[in-house]
Amino acid sequence: MTHNEIDQLVKSWIVDTATRPANPRVQAIVLRLVSDLCKTIEDLDIQPSEFWTGLDYLTNAGKANELGLLTPGLGLERFLDIRADEAEARAGLQGGTPRTIEGPLYVAGAPESTGYARLDDGSESAQAEVLFMQGTVYDAEGKPLSGAKVEVWHANLMGNYSFFDQSQSHFNLRRSIVTDADGRYQFRSIMPKGYGCPPGGSTQTLLDQLGRHGQRPAHIHFFVSADGHRKLTTQINIDGDEYLWDDFAFASREGLIPAVSKVDDPAAIAQKDLRQPYSSIDFDFRLYGENQSAPAAEVERPRAAA
């Protein structure tokens, strides 16, 4: 069957059978997806058993709540970011902090404080390296933004996230920090570890078939928002991680790998009320102002809330 014939056949199924007004956007998307899938079946000679195996795979991935993990693993979430970058560039927006993927592990409702927060609950203090991270939120012209919100979340030493990992305390390693009068934020936490897809899970099963690993470098997620500005979704990677430029989720980007300073000066250690050296990261965020020519920066998607 030719592609033209497939297009006409699928149109007869999706469009010509409509007996009442359809949502034109949904209709156009379904028409395209079904047509392209039929063409793939034809071009690659996909057999019925292969088709139903694939459908069963997607069903099980949904049951395991892994579709949100599979999406970045196949590059789809990165592709959405590429398109958003292109749209902002067409609108004349350049020079802000690079965006990168959100991932599936945000939880709304984290405790909020002004200027400073401690993220960790202390349960891993004996094994963890203390991390201080600080910086300023600026607008596009370089003016500090007081009252901006910096939402931050990251994994523990086992590569797990609170809420999804029931062994952790409520909102461990999750906070919302409102910048102070000078646009500054700071938090104390622990140096996160990278993690991998669940062994034997849906995502890793497919990655194995593709000859790929499912590892992520250590990283810290952020939402940064301020009135009159476009919301930023981003994350920083921890420099030196073995998977820094080999992230299965394709989230590593230039401009999001700040230097990690090892602080061992006794006076600086004492000032932080610590007894051992710690790591420090300086990182500033630069937000774009609202722009009617660019698509909305706030992405509507299902998210967990505690």
Rank of each mutant, 00 (worst) to 15 (best):
F51C: 06
V150Q: 03
R25F: 12
M191G: 08
P277K: 15
N291C: 12
S35V: 07
A218P: 11
N23M: 02
T234Q: 08
E141F: 05
D208M: 03
G214N: 02
N23I: 04
D43S: 10
L44V: 11
E42C: 04
R32I: 00
G62C: 12
F248R: 09
A294P: 12
Q215D: 12
L145Q: 00
G159S: 06
R286P: 05
D81M: 12
L256H: 11
Y116G: 10
H3A: 14
Y278D: 08
Q94L: 13
D284P: 07
G147D: 07
Y185S: 04
D180Y: 07
R32N: 11
L93D: 07
Y138W: 01
L9S: 10
V260S: 04
Q27L: 09
L206C: 00
P277D: 11
S113A: 15
D36L: 04
N65E: 12
I236V: 07
A297D: 14
E254G: 08
A267H: 03
V26R: 15
W153F: 00
L232W: 00
G95K: 09
L232I: 04
A249F: 15
R303P: 01
H219A: 11
T205L: 02
I41M: 14
Q94I: 15
I46N: 01
S169P: 11
R286V: 15
Q27D: 05
I82G: 09
E298Q: 13
F51Y: 11
S176D: 15
L256D: 06
G200V: 02
E254I: 10
Q94W: 04
R303S: 01
F223R: 10
T136M: 04
L244A: 06
S49W: 08
A155Q: 06
I101G: 15
A91I: 00
Q134P: 01
R301M: 09
E50A: 14
A305G: 07
L69Q: 10
T205P: 00
N65W: 07
G289L: 04
E141Y: 04
V150H: 02
V26W: 04
Q271N: 14
F222V: 15
N237S: 15
L244G: 10
S125I: 10
F250N: 14
K231S: 08
F250C: 12
Y116H: 13
A126V: 02
L210Y: 03
G73K: 05
G147H: 07
V107T: 11
D273K: 14
I190T: 05
G240H: 07
G196P: 06
A270K: 15
R275T: 15
G147E: 05
Y106F: 07
D264W: 07
Y57G: 00
F223M: 03
Y243S: 07
E42W: 01
L210M: 13
A267V: 05
D36Q: 08
D227F: 00
G194S: 09
T97L: 01
A306R: 08
S125Q: 10
T17K: 09
V299M: 09
G196D: 12
Q166G: 13
D247N: 13
P21L: 11
D227A: 14
I236Y: 02
K272Q: 14
S12F: 03
E50F: 03
T71M: 09
G62Y: 10
R99F: 02
A270Y: 03
T59Q: 06
L206V: 03
A226E: 06
R20Q: 14
V150T: 02
V30N: 04
Q166W: 13
Q186G: 12
F79M: 11
A226F: 06
T40K: 08
Q215I: 08
Q47M: 14
Q215C: 05
A89W: 06
